[in-house]
Structure formats: C-alpha cells, structure tokens
C-alpha cells in the first residue's frame, strides 16, 4: 500500500499535552514526544506516571485539556476516535480487547470494518494474516475468548493489521503473559517494524525487553518528560535515565 506522498520525518508528534480524567486534575502535564517513521519508540517510566494515559489521549479515548497531537503533520485532535483507524493510526490496549464470544475469523474480519464492502481485499488481508499467524488458521472457528493469552494477542494484532496502519500504539503487550510468550510477542513487533516499516510506539514495564528492541526511548516522570534519547545513549547512562 502506498503511503502519503508528502512524508514528514516524524509519523507522530505530541506537543505540550495536558490530559486528565477531570478538568482540573491533569495526569499528563505538558508531555512532548515525536516518533520517527519506521522506528520503534518506547515510552518508559514507573507505574502511574501516565504512560497508558498518553496512548489513550493519542488515540482519542481521552480528550486533551490542552496540547496537540499530529499524525503525519496533520492535527488530529478533533478526529473522532472511531475514525482514527482510517488515518492509519491503530491502538492495541493493555487489556485484552478481543470480541470474546465471536469466532477468531470474525474477530479478524471486523478489523476490516472500514473497507467491509471490498470483499476481495478482505479475503486477501485475511489470508495474509493467517500466513503471519498460522495457528489462527487452525482455530479460525473457535470463539476468541477460548484461546490462550498469547493467541488472543495474535488475534488482536491480526485484527489491527487488517487495515495496514502505519502507526501502531501498543500498550504493555505482554502484561500477564508467560515468559516464553513474551519474547514471541516482542519478536512480532520487531518483525512488523523491520519487514513492513511500521512506526511503533510501545509503552511497557518490561524495561529489559523494551530497551532490547527500541530505537528511541522516552522516559516519563509524573506526567512530564524526564529524559529521552537513542536507545544506546539511554542504556549507556541508565543511572541518569531511571528512577531506580
């Protein structure tokens, strides 16, 4: 799929974002972030500093009280959440968000809701996904809720990839998964970046894994930027970067 002709250097940019669940109580207090195209940007920080809140705000589940979100240089603050997928922005929440009582195939097909009338493209995309995750082809008729945690993540990812989003917001993809599966999930993410050139923004508690695969790292502290830099720099000076 061809992407926009006028490509900005940064696929996603967040400027001075103030977000909160209540009007006068901001969890994010002026966060700035840029995600370079085709790279994996990790956002790290202690529990409760607002990492997940940032992703929710970028996707529009929370309305910013101030500040802007740009996708490919376009301001998207006012685009309704459900239309953001059509801009090539996708979100994988921390909580497993599959449709539990629907079959695996229906789950994945619903990912193509925005082009539901294009039967041929739906079939093609479904096939692509089954090739990406062969296990899902075997279990296509099963209710998605009966799958294992790792496989549910696969369903989620497959559903998300139906529309070929260019920017993926991923929130703690391995929370609650077994150790062996974690590696698998991170490999899936790196593969998406390396093979398909996706821009990925990863929020995670698994610092070790995140630092292994990230290209650029942001560290948040209590709703504000603390440090940022290419992964190598951050790893070189962990003391300065971290809250430990």
């Amino acid at each position: 799929m061809t992407t926009q002709t006028a490509q900005t250097e940064y696929a996603l940019e967040v400027r001075d974002l103030y977000v909160g669940y209540y009007k006068d109580l901001n969890i994010l207090q002026g966060v700035n972030m840029k995600a370079r195209r085709g790279q994996l940007t990790a956002i790290l920080g202690a529990n409760g500093v607002g990492k997940s809140t940032l992703l929710k705000a970028i996707f529009g589940f929370l309305k910013p009280n101030a500040g802007d979100v740009f996708l490919n240089g376009q301001r998207i603050n006012d685009v309704p959440t459900y239309q953001r997928i059509t801009l090539g922005l996708a979100y994988i929440p921390q909580r497993m968000s599959i449709f539990r009582w629907m079959s695996v195939e229906d789950n994945i097909l619903l990912g193509g809701w925005t082009f539901r009338h294009d039967k041929e493209r739906l079939q093609r995309k479904l096939e692509e996904n089954f090739e990406r995750f062969p296990i899902l082809r075997e279990k296509r008729r099963q209710p998605a809720g009966e799958l294992s945690g790792g496989q549910q993540r696969m369903v989620e990812l497959a559903r998300t990839l139906m529309t070929d989003p260019q920017v993926l917001l991923v929130d703690e993809p391995t929370a609650g998964l077994a150790k062996l599966l974690k590696r698998e999930v991170y490999d899936m993410l790196t593969e998406l970046r390396d093979r398909e050139g996706k821009t990925i923004i990863l929020v995670d508690q698994e610092i070790r894994h995140a630092l292994r695969i990230a290209d650029y790292v942001y560290i948040l502290d209590l709703g504000r930027n603390k440090t940022e830099g290419p992964t190598a720099e951050i790893v070189a000076d962990l003391k300065k970067a971290f809250w430990i």
């Binding site: 459900y82 059509t86 929440p93 968000s97 629907m102 809701w113 925005t114 998300t160």
Partner: peptide
C-alpha cells in the same frame, strides 16, 4: 462485547 475495541476497529459506538 467490547466498546473500546469496537471503536478501535472503526465502528462508531
């Protein structure tokens, strides 16, 4: 089954 996921795939809840 999941309002948030429905919005994520582009359904207007």
């Amino acid at each position: 089954q999941d309002r948030q996921a429905a919005a994520v795939v582009g359904i207007n809840p």
